[in-house]
Design a protein around this nucleic acid. Sequence first.
DNA 1: CTTTACTATGAACACTGTTCAGTTTTCAGG
DNA 2: CCTGAAAACTGAACAGTGTTCATAGTAAAG
Lengths: 247, 247
Amino acid sequence: MTQPDMPTPPWERPPRRRTPARVPLTRERIVDAAFTVLDREGYDRLSMRQVAAELGVAVSALYVHVRDKDDLLQLMYTRMFEGYDVPEPDPEHWREQVKDFARQARERMLSHRDLPKLAMGHVPFTPELLPYVERLLAVFASSGMPRHVLAVSGDLLSTYINGFALEESVWQERYRESQGSWDKLREEINGYFASLPPDRFPHLVALADIMMEESTDHRFELGLEIILRGLASYIGEPDPGEEREEG
Amino acid sequence: MTQPDMPTPPWERPPRRRTPARVPLTRERIVDAAFTVLDREGYDRLSMRQVAAELGVAVSALYVHVRDKDDLLQLMYTRMFEGYDVPEPDPEHWREQVKDFARQARERMLSHRDLPKLAMGHVPFTPELLPYVERLLAVFASSGMPRHVLAVSGDLLSTYINGFALEESVWQERYRESQGSWDKLREEINGYFASLPPDRFPHLVALADIMMEESTDHRFELGLEIILRGLASYIGEPDPGEEREEG
DNA sequence: CTTTACTATGAACACTGTTCAGTTTTCAGG
DNA sequence: CCTGAAAACTGAACAGTGTTCATAGTAAAG
């Protein structure tokens, strides 16, 4: 009678496999494949069948590991945050820290195709994501801003990053469709704005060149700075959510 | 011989119709029906077939008036802007004017189900929409802010409004699914945050009550004010996009 | 070797957007 | 009133979607 709880001795090799022990399907592998499909096909054409095909597997096999397509999208959303680097709060440099975080986030958003579309409508309140939110809040809090301002700061920032990245990815998609060069497309749009009747659209005409600048980095940085200035302006002021409690 | 160009005399009744001259399908009517379906079914279940059914018409009939589903969505997006009230620029009150515009926009975003989802990824650069953008820019410009700040202000504002409204509508959708009461859902989420280990999530725990306040109006107004303060801080400063041009 | 638990399959269902050969309706000209 | 042509609308079809389920296959346990 064999003793079931005995450890396997090291010289006893495991039973041979004829085929090289086909790699089992896991959530991780499914998410990997989903990202591959996303990059190749775009968000609108990301389908369970494409993911299954990418893995060389039947569609229904995915549903053993994943409840829904929504579930898969949620996993992708979570994956997108992995390994985020949120620094230890330092009251002296909170603004630079927030900016670094924002730059990092934008970079991630552009690291795969259509990521902002995927992120839209998801809230980072799953257990895996809360630590990141907490850390970011800690950085904001180290500035000494009032509680109610702190409570909106995270939202304000993530809203900005998502919105900005979404716009960027929309342009990228347009560019993909147009199959021309970046410069040509920009030239076209620039020309369109410039060709508007200046008496009816003076500001649009005057700002066309800035809005379609070669690099969007300036604009991102400027928007970031504007938000930070707004937030910083509350430091030292009474909390705007509790003004009625003072006599 | 009848004279074709003569006006029809008032006593001459138009030729009788057996059926009450069935109302012809128009783009307008299709968009109307689409909004009805949107409100009833939500964005994800808004389909051409549902719209056709709402009109009592075959699906293919829609394609006579509308190129694509995308085309229809674009029409809905445009409709959403109709009758917007952007005031005449008044340098004395530009901040209040911007706020009024933002409040109006948020109200619209919540006037139909899932509107923010629809708005995401569309850019208000169609000929019908440009006048509104121009007017909003005019209001911003009347403040005297530098050109480069002006160029991002519109984006910054619309990004904020869209993002905020999207979050609100996501909550509304969650609420719809949960089929409970608002207060119960809020209580649950509040409880969830409050139940987190305070040593690992001090800020989240401390801010839970504010983040889940009864009214989201405060938060919207506060975020708005933060952005406006940031923008206003540039008035009188040199243009941040042209700092290198000075000696 | 047999049993058991789990994983993967293929077919099916009810949808989706879109097209297209025909039919119907509308309306102007004779 | 009739005719003809243009426009509007229909029904069926195609390729694709998310999801489910009885069945077949595989791996480990007894």
